[in-house]
Design a protein around this nucleic acid. Structure first.
Length: 371
RNA sequence: GGCGACGUGGCCGAGUGGCUGAGGCAAAGGACUGCAAAUCCUUCCACAUGGGUUCGAUUCCCAUCGUCGCCUCCA
């Protein structure tokens, strides 16, 4: 199968061994799952299904970021403990994913479960000389890592210029280099804090994924994913610290899922242009929601609009009318998926077969849609 | 500013180096109806702009313009 690799900026063969090690960045559970989240994880679900269909076993880890600023802020606002908020939202996310018929992932480790791993991981980075302590924080030393930027393809001078332009942490006097990022930093008074040999505090944003990937999957993983908004800085920093810690390649293949738009803008909480999965599935068959998502190619940005659900409800009914006899379209669907996960083409093939009155149950099942 | 994506008829949205071009919605006309709705039939309308490559481009390349995204909150 061929997939686009963000780091190589090209569609390249993706030919993992019998067991595929896969890590996708999950959610920060402080609010309901919206279409953008669903689209991301459904894309990886379709990938997983095809890999299993090809005979692989897939070990997919999807973390839950339950130690993070937006979660603390929301918990503060609601007056609840951040872990209570996280547990509730995580459960809601799981229900949404289950309703959309997503395969269960191998594990969904929480950042809060990884503090000992993070401590050890930071120790590794420090021991190998890629990080330094300063002012109660531990920073990654970007100057020691020349290939910083090779995932996102920003040059160092560009990143510095941007950082300087935006102000903020560039001028942090504890930093040696403006692009150095935090591995560990002191907590605010009302934030959780853990003791370490370099001082009390909490993990930096990127470190949990590196520590969890190492803990659950080992030094080198086959495929790492997430939303395209995570490419920089998150995945750039993650790769740097992981390779610094282990000395081994971190990720063989980077796969990012494009953003979903609504009313011409990226679906985001600040704009309020959100469609929540739990609200949507009160009104529509979850299979139709899945179809509405995979009607789009994972790598292209797309816009949510009101015609999507009626159209895909009709599509679902159309497909269901065929008999159980198989049409031979399954192999065409496989070929479409192997071509950079071309789900729009796969749907078109099935539409066509269904229009001829052929059975498309197996082909639909390959996409995670049980008729 | 850097990087990236995109720009197809009123709207959404496939697709292809060659009589130019799915499908859906909308609209118009007709059939049907007591009148409508629904349904069915028919019709209308497009490949951002300028170059280049080519026998020939909407499709490939370059530039321009435009829209949008990312740039340490974000799937």
């Amino acid at each position: 199968m061929r997939l686009y690799d963000t780091a190589r900026q090209a569609v390249v063969p993706f030919e993992p061994g019998p067991q595929v090690l896969m890590y996708t960045c999950g959610i920060t559970p402080y609010d309901a799952t919206h279409l953008g989240h669903a689209a991301t994880f459904i894309a990886y679900d379709v990938l997983q299904r095809r890999l299993i269909d090809l005979g692989h076993s897939v070990k997919c880890v999807r973390n839950v970021t339950d130690v993070d600023d937006p979660l603390f802020a929301k918990a503060r606002e609601l007056g609840v403990h951040y872990l209570d908020l996280a547990a509730g939202e995580e459960a809601r996310f799981e229900r949404d994913m289950e309703a959309l018929h997503a395969l269960p992932v191998h594990s969904s480790p929480r950042a809060s479960s990884a503090i000992p791993d993070i401590r050890g991981f930071i120790g590794m980075v420090l021991d190998r000389g890629f990080a330094y302590e300063s002012g109660g924080s531990v920073y990654f030393d970007v100057s020691k890592f020349p290939s910083f930027g090779s995932v996102s393809h920003y040059s160092e001078s560009e990143m510095i210029a941007i950082a300087r332009e935006r102000g903020g942490k560039v001028d942090d006097p504890n930093k040696r280099h403006p692009l150095d990022f935090v591995l560990w930093h002191p907590s605010e008074p009302d934030e959780p804090s853990w003791d370490t040999m370099w001082g009390p505090g909490r993990p930096g944003w990127h470190i949990e994924c590196s520590a969890l990937a190492l803990r659950e999957l080992g030094t080198t993983i086959d495929l790492h994913g997430g939303g395209s908004d995570l490419i920089f800085p998150h995945h750039e920093c993650e790769r740097a610290q992981s390779e610094a810690a282990t000395g081994e390649p971190f990720v063989k293949h980077w796969m990012h899922v494009a953003m979903v738009y609504m009313n011409g803008h990226k679906m985001s909480k600040s704009l309020g242009n959100l469609v929540f999965v739990d609200a949507l599935r009160r009104e529509w068959d979850p299979r139709a929601i899945r179809l509405a998502i995979i009607e789009h190619h994972y790598r292209l940005e797309w816009e949510w609009d009101d015609t999507l659900m009626p159209r895909n409800k009709a599509r679902l009914e159309h497909w269901s009318r065929g008999g159980h006899g198989e049409s031979g379209v399954v192999d065409d669907v496989r070929a479409a998926l192997d071509d950079d996960l071309n789900t729009p083409a796969a749907l078109a093939l099935i539409d066509e077969a269904a229009a001829k009155g052929l059975g498309v149950h197996d082909a639909a099942a390959l996409l995670g849609v049980l008729l």
